[in-house]
């Protein structure tokens, strides 16, 4: 039970007085989500393709990297990159690399599954009109696989959005960090719950809106159903 005494009007007034500060953190959160998802896509899509079509050392290297990244807590990845390897002094850059690589490891699995779900007959038909293997993959398999990836991608997007909050561990001034700044200020510990409720609301609105947006994308680009689904 929440003691009614903590939900006080003056604590809410404190939250709203600092709304600008929190919205600034929201901008960082959104920015970090976008850069991380983008890095995850740029690395994850080729990685998924290599897992399906590649061979030799490259394929085993990609597989191993994926297994390691998926098997390591994101908090550990981020602290390693920031405090041990120190790839950059910018917490934003480090957070992007950590979240981006981890997301690449998951996005590669989304694309791998999608590529493998496209019927072999599609490739045979493409090759039968004289396309090379590469053309068949590029013009026939990939476009279908990308469309089939949207639901998995949607899921990944919300996970990355929420996991940006882990950047608090390396001091990045994103939404959760800024919320904590507020209630750790002297005399405002009574506003802890109000601050957390407020930023939770922001996370919820962000995930809700992006999910709706991606639903639309799915509707627009879905392959008319019935065939090879």
């Amino acid at each position: 039970m929440i003691p009614s005494v903590v939900l006080q009007a003056n604590d809410w007034a404190f939250v709203f007085a600092n709304a600008d500060y929190l919205l600034g953190g929201t901008v960082v959160t959104v920015g970090l989500t976008i850069t991380s998802i983008l890095l995850g896509f740029l690395a994850g899509f080729p990685a998924g393709a290599i897992e399906v079509y590649g061979d030799g050392y490259l394929q085993s290297a990609v597989r191993t990297a994926g297994v390691v990244l998926r098997g390591t807590p994101i908090l550990v990845i981020m602290m390693l990159l920031f405090f041990v390897v120190s790839i950059s002094s910018s917490a934003f850059v480090v957070a992007t690399v950590g979240l981006g690589l981890r997301s690449a490891a998951y996005q590669s699995q989304i694309f791998r599954g999608a590529l493998q779900s496209v019927d072999e007959g599609q490739i045979e038909a493409a090759r039968s009109v004289g396309m090379s293997h590469r053309q068949a993959i590029g013009y026939v398999v990939v476009p279908q696989a990308l469309r089939r990836s949207v639901p998995g991608f949607q899921n990944e997007f919300t996970i990355v959005l929420k996991d940006t909050s882990i950047a608090i561990a390396i001091g990045l001034s994103e939404l959760l960090t800024r919320g904590q700044d507020l209630f750790l200020q002297g005399g405002h510990s009574t506003a802890t719950l109000e601050v957390i409720l407020f930023i939770s609301g922001i996370y919820f609105v962000l995930t809700f809106v992006t999910n709706r947006g991606l639903d639309r994308l799915d509707d627009i680009y879905a392959i008319p159903s019935g065939e090879n689904q």
Partner: peptide, 20 residues
């Protein structure tokens, strides 16, 4: 082989039309 296949068309039992 790609040149060969330009000269030899194939029609499949289960159509294999490009679904997208």
């Amino acid at each position: 082989v790609n040149a060969l296949r330009r000269n030899v068309g194939m029609v499949f039992q289960d159509f294999n039309l490009f679904a997208h």
